[in-house]
Write a protein that binds this DNA or RNA. Structure first.
Length: 767
DNA sequence: CAGTGAGCGAGCTTCCGCTTGACTT
């Protein structure tokens, strides 16, 4: 039996550390937190100074029992969870559960997984920092109180099963506010003018020089007048300015910057990025992937330096240490970097290779020289106008870090003046080749992607590296938000061109409103957000987290008592919850669209029991209202009365087949055909429910019937409720609406009724 | 799975932050 038991948070970390420590040390992992607040009565005794009631999480019972046993058998237990608020609390919970008095606990911390760092940590144990633990308890209790008091208000006032919380509700608010900015954006066209000049070099070769006018015109008339004057104008170089520009590399990856870059460069969702990174981490290929630190260990900087010298030479080397700038960072780990910098690539699945290379390049680049550019600006005077034409160009003098890595931006229509400027002298007259004026529309702020929302949350200090991906998925599973593509429309732009003394008009088409994998708030998201901002504005305030974080820091410094801080927050908050429960009315987001043009009945849209819907007419003794669900992409806030009325064209009857009526409608899962009480989905992008005809419907019905036949591997006359079917995950047994697995070694076609029943019985016994 | 659109109303839902697998119909 080992003399020493070391407990860390992550099993992969345990494996690595065990190698450094040798035989006398057994290194185990707690798999994160082992206890949490009970669910009953908040798990908090509000009357008794908010005393938390912790229980061992069900999925941790096994590991806790194992750790308990090992702790008893060991002479010493080293608590080596991360050095931050949560890590300190994990150690404290472990000490409590394993029966170690906190003052006797051997708490050790290290920020990098190297032999030196760990041996040093072992030599410097300390007691558990109770103040830091209390800061964590305050954080935990506050989040529970907010979440478990606000959510039930929503169940009562909006819809059951909804949720609210310090983090998710702000995330939704950001999306709702951005959506409104986009929808209310007033786009205005202006004319942008670009002139092309021909410049002869010393060798007689002609190069083009493009210059943009420093003014944009609002009307066609103004633009025409400008071009008219250019017909007779002379163009002279007024000034040439060149200045050197340095570009520095970005710091190494944190969780949030990795999610952003993987999204921009490869289109990965944030959870996809985290799953791939987890694989790389478990395989020992990268350091820990949930971090807010940009710090690199000395060892890492050393090996990075070596790799740069070997691949690119001394000219490209410039080592540096970066400082974290994000709010509330706790820096328990290093930045995300390759474990071994000498491996510029790895073997494995394509996505893992891609992400690894991205991390490798980013890390390498962070220790490379700045890129040197020369930026040139040329001002060109127009003899008969006061406006100036400006040409800008950039020349790369030394690539530096850009040789391996360039960061992408969220701005898709980024236009960089990176053209080469021919040598020019002040006072030089230029030969105008043509001038083009093109309409350009101002565009609304961009909608958030998953990754850009994470970026924003991090800027506001809301959420942690371990919760960014789960938060993004929570707001989607609650259906506050959908991730979607939008087709967009074509818009026609007006253009004017001056060439050879003549002005001609032309048009150009441009795609607008096109969106790819963007987050859109739903009606539920909007209604919940408006309700929360109206009644609990302080909780969904963008600075709420930042201000409570300041108080948590005070608690951690021993300058504030944690439950007193909670009390100051809870008292007014709870009163507000009570007041809202009692006085506010139900919130359905109802919006009146006016009256039906033919029948005069009122048309309204609101959230009903089954989601957003339109209603024509009101319920009373003689009239019954009609209902229709809103289509995908339609919002209560923006739908027009015409669009709403159109929804009532469905379901429509399209004829008879096999002596039964065939109808077409749109349901919760999209457009469908209904025939003899069976449903058949319409093909996405192929069939339109408004135009689909009987012939096409018959084809769909027959296709579905054949597909269903193929699905059946075996049926039994004696037991019609039992079937062997082919499903998404392979063959399975279906019995009384329940499904059962078939062992992979068994050929499903050979199963007898008895075999199936045996498999069902076996599966039931396992549970 | 998809149709519906009220108030007889059981019992349930829910937070954030640490960690990984389990395992889908």
């Amino acid at each position: 039996m080992a003399e020493n038991l070391v407990i860390v948070e992550s099993p992969a970390k345990a494996k690595t550390i065990e190698k450094f420590l040798g035989k006398d040390y057994l290194v185990k992992s707690s798999y994160g937190h082992i206890r949490d607040l009970a669910k009953k009565e908040f798990g908090i005794n509000i009357k008794k100074n908010y005393e938390p009631h912790y229980i061992i999480s069900p999925d941790k019972k096994k590991i806790v029992a194992e750790l308990k046993k090992l702790a008893q058998e060991s002479a010493q237990v080293w608590l080596a969870s991360d050095e931050d608020r949560e890590g300190e609390a994990i150690s404290w919970h472990l000490a409590e559960v394993l029966g170690i008095p906190p003052e006797k606990a051997k708490r050790i911390v290290f920020h990098e997984i190297t032999k030196e760092a760990i041996l040093k940590a072992i030599q410097n144990p300390r007691p558990i920092d109770q103040n830091l633990v209390n800061a964590q308890q305050a954080r935990r209790v506050l989040d529970r109180l907010v979440g478990f008091e606000l959510s039930p208000v929503l169940w009562k006032k909006v819809k059951p099963s909804l949720s609210a919380g310090r983090v998710q509700s702000v995330a939704v608010r950001l999306l709702v506010e951005r959506e409104r900015e986009v929808l209310n954006f007033n786009t205005v066209p202006v004319y942008r003018v670009v002139a092309v000049f021909e410049v002869a070099g010393s060798d007689g070769k002609i190069t083009e020089l493009k210059a943009e006018l420093d003014k944009k015109f609002n009307t066609r008339e103004e633009t025409m007048a400008f071009l008219e004057s250019c017909k007779v104008a002379e163009f002279v170089v007024e000034g040439v300015e060149t200045k050197p520009v340095k570009k520095s590399p970005s710091p190494p990856f944190t969780t949030s910057t990795l999610q952003q870059e993987a999204s921009r460069k490869y289109g990965f969702s944030v959870s996809q990025t985290m799953t791939i990174a987890q694989k790389l981490y478990e395989g020992g290929k990268i350091t820990y992937m949930r971090t807010d630190s940009v710090n690199l260990s000395d060892l890492a900087i050393g090996t990075t330096k070596k790799a740069i010298l070997k691949e690119f030479g001394e000219k490209y080397l410039k080592t540096r240490q970066y400082k974290t700038k994000s709010r509330g960072a706790q820096e328990a780990h290093e930045a995300i970097r390759p474990t071994y910098m000498e491996h510029s690539e790895i073997a494995g699945p394509a996505n893992e290779k891609k992400l690894y290379e991205l991390i490798w390049k980013r890390t390498i680049a962070s220790q490379m020289s700045e890129a040197l550019l020369e930026k040139t600006t040329v001002n060109i005077r127009i003899s008969n106008r006061k406006e100036t034409l400006v040409a800008t160009g950039e020349v790369l003098l030394f690539d530096g870090f850009m040789r391996v890595y360039r960061e992408s931006t969220d701005d898709e229509n980024g236009e960089n003046g990176s053209e080469l400027i021919p040598p020019l002298k002040q006072g030089q007259a230029l030969n105008m080749e043509s001038i083009e004026a093109m309409q350009r529309f101002s565009h609304a702020p961009a909608r958030y992607t998953e990754a850009s929302l994470v970026k924003k949350l991090e800027e506001l200090g809301i959420g942690r590296p371990s919760t960014f991906a789960p938060t993004i998925s929570t707001i989607q599973t609650r259906e506050y938000v959908v991730k979607e593509d939008r087709q967009g429309t074509i818009r026609t732009l007006d253009g004017l061109k001056l060439k050879d003394g003549k002005i001609t008009g032309f048009i150009k088409n441009e795609k607008t409103g096109f969106e790819k994998s963007k987050l859109f708030p739903t009606d539920i998201g909007i209604v919940v957000n408006d309700f929360l901002t109206e009644h609990f504005g302080n909780i969904v305030d963008f600075n709420f987290t930042a201000s409570v974080e300041e108080e948590f820091d005070e608690i951690a410094d021993g300058k504030m008592v944690w439950y007193e801080m909670i009390h100051r927050f809870y008292k007014p908050f709870h009163e507000q919850v009570d007041l809202t429960q009692k006085t506010s009315s139900r919130s359905s987001g109802e919006r009146s669209l006016g009256n039906h043009p033919e029948t005069g009945e009122p048309v309204v849209v609101k959230i009903g029991r089954y989601g957003p819907m339109a209603q024509i007419g009101i319920a009373n003794e003689d009239t019954k209202p009609r209902f229709a669900r809103l289509a995908k992409g339609q919002l209560i806030e923006t739908i027009t009365i015409e669009e709403a009325i159109k929804l009532f064209a469905l379901p429509r009857s399209i004829g008879d087949f096999e002596d039964a009526a065939v109808t077409v409608g749109i349901g919760r899962f999209g457009p469908y055909i209904r025939h003899k009480s069976a449903f058949y989905s319409l093909k996405k992008g192929v069939d339109d429910p408004m135009t689909v005809d009987l012939d096409r419907a018959m084809v769909i019905i027959i296709e579905k019937r054949t597909a269903d036949l193929m699905r059946v591997i075996k049926e039994f006359d004696e037991e019609p409720e039992l079937k062997v079917l082919n499903g998404r995950f392979g063959p399975y047994i279906s019995f009384k609406k329940k499904n059962f697995k078939i062992p992979k070694t068994t050929d499903p076609a050979t199963l007898s009724l008895e075999d199936c029943k045996a498999l069902i019985a076996k599966s039931s016994n396992d549970k």
